[in-house]
């Protein structure tokens, strides 16, 4: 059996890497600085699974997460890859 990809697990929502052009649009739409977005660790298993496909993911990359939401079908959430924790 090939190594299990955590992104296939029912609990794990879709993770997508956001390109730099999209990133600007998102930050503009949310009217927020990147550092105020929720964080995701670069060592997170989901990020590691993404890296297996896309190669190394730099810190500061925004990850778009499409969650299945009980209240609105699908909801989009953003996390920024950062190893530091919030103060």
């Amino acid at each position: 059996m090939a190594k299990f990809n955590v992104l296939d697990h029912n609990l794990v929502p879709e993770h997508h890497i956001v390109s730099e052009e999209e990133e600007k649009e998102i930050l503009k739409e949310l009217n927020i600085d990147k550092e105020f977005l929720p964080k995701i660790s670069p060592n997170d298993p989901a990020i590691k699974a993404l890296e297996a496909v896309h190669g190394k993911i730099k810190e500061g990359t925004i990850i778009k997460i499409v969650r299945k939401s009980p209240t609105m079908g699908h909801s989009v959430y953003y996390r920024v890859v950062a190893s530091e924790v919030f103060k």
Partner: peptide, 14 residues
């Protein structure tokens, strides 16, 4: 454990 094995988003759902 879920956070360690499946990631933070899975932990949130859990």
């Amino acid at each position: 454990e879920i956070a360690n094995v499946l990631g933070i988003e899975a932990a949130r759902n859990a």
